[in-house]
Design a protein around this nucleic acid. Sequence first.
DNA 1: CCAAACGATGGGTGTACTCCAACGATTGGG
DNA 2: CCCAATCGTTGGAGTACACCCATCGTTTGG
Lengths: 154, 154
Amino acid sequence: MTANAIPERLPPRLLDISTFVTAQVGRTGRARMGRMMDEHGLGLWHFAVLAALDDSAPASQRELGTRLRIDPSDVVEVVGRLEEAGLVQRERDTADRRRYVVELTARGRAELEAVTERAARLDDELLAPLDDAERATLTRLMRRVLAHHDPRAR
Amino acid sequence: MTANAIPERLPPRLLDISTFVTAQVGRTGRARMGRMMDEHGLGLWHFAVLAALDDSAPASQRELGTRLRIDPSDVVEVVGRLEEAGLVQRERDTADRRRYVVELTARGRAELEAVTERAARLDDELLAPLDDAERATLTRLMRRVLAHHDPRAR
DNA sequence: CCAAACGATGGGTGTACTCCAACGATTGGG
DNA sequence: CCCAATCGTTGGAGTACACCCATCGTTTGG
């Protein structure tokens, strides 16, 4: 009589809502990424900032903030930790001494490379049940969806 | 010179990570659902509980908790608000008077119906850039992915 | 009949994430 | 030369979420 008669199943109504399913998958994916970054002593934001610094030239902290939609107040902490870890370099702009010029260091670039590699592997784990073609399809569709809601994703 | 030279674009490195893209989409979807539920005076948990009560018979609060992975402590508040709103009925189990039997009321069922309808419309908005076939594909793939990570989704 | 188990409840903790107000330093325009 | 605006910075508020624990009434089993 101790056997639980309740099936450990989520309500069909919820499973029929793509938003719910997507949010759940996104949540677990984000959690895994977070745990992975923890092992590198960094948070998810740090990864985003490193990536932003890599793909476009050195930027001021404010530019980083607006680009990644992080509040300027929070950028301070993120860049600060990255600097402490020796992953970025922060120097006053000689032209405008109010702003900092934030730049990737060699170590920062290497770390970004390593994290990117691990992220790709986590992606594989997340989409494990899908074959290559299905993963490509899913990724393509999701990117279109994201681009529709966030112009920055184009 | 006031024109911002920084492109309002997310770093390609991030966009190449399915986990990131999925998490972003999930975030906006969840936010929209939350706003919608707010208009009904409820939170996302309340929707989940109503759905759980609808699809399977009346359950105890503990069963609801384990099924939806909500801490028993938190179930109390959710069910409490639902009862205040007249959407569920809470009575002592005559067989085991320790437990409550939580049940949907007529109003609760109607509210669930209304919320489900609105959720479906929000789903359409979320997947707006995709045609019907693509939406079906995406939903199917995402459900398989979720099922892989959460046995309750099968 | 009494100790152990169970469900419901209330309270509190810790952690992210987001946002806002204010300040010193600096710049550029009037 | 002065004043408004900008940048980085500090500090803190607010919310959401997931936990954990102590308590109380009830039931169960020896």
